[in-house]
């Protein structure tokens, strides 16, 4: 038995498809949805922990890729250098689950890692380049 953590990025036309059902039913995989950010007619993201036979996992991921779903190994962590942060808020513009948000009293940046879906959009959107993705 093997275990993998992956980030799926869905094109809008795949958002309404029950793909986790197929992973369970057709490939006999144990699926744990860690994070999901799926909205109709928009690009969706899901972080999955997949457990099962190594070969079946590969087949399952191939099934996803064949449906134009982008599959990436999940980042282990998003690291924000708080010392260097100027609290501009540019990263919050792309953080759809609002893990990165400005406190409306202090206007300082706060990072609620529980809500992070590891999409990594914040890292490239940070003008000071102080958000790092750790694998």
């Amino acid at each position: 038995m093997a275990k993998r953590k992956v980030v799926l990025t869905y094109p809008p036309e795949q958002v309404d498809k029950p793909i986790t059902y197929h992973l369970v039913k057709d490939f006999d995989l144990v699926i744990n949805i860690l994070r999901a950010e799926i909205r109709e007619e928009e690009t969706g993201r899901m972080v999955l922990e997949i457990e099962g036979d190594e070969e079946k996992i590969e087949q399952g991921l191939k099934f996803l890729r064949n449906r134009s779903i982008d599959v990436q190994e999940a980042a282990r962590d998003i690291l924000l250098d708080e010392e260097k942060c100027v609290d501009c808020g540019a990263c919050t513009a792309v953080c759809l689950p609002k893990a990165l948000h400005l406190n409306t009293g202090t206007w300082k940046l706060e990072f609620d890692k529980e809500k992070c879906i590891f999409c990594e959009l914040c890292a490239r959107s940070c003008p000071l380049k102080i958000i790092e993705v750790a694998f």
Binding site: V86, C88, G89, K98, H101, T106, W107, P127
Partner: peptide, 25 residues
Amino acid sequence: LRSGEITIKGKNVPTAPLSSYAKAR
């Protein structure tokens, strides 16, 4: 804008600043 959401063409749109209000303060 500071409330975090505005309405454009009937759609709720999240807002984000690029300039730091904390630093300005």
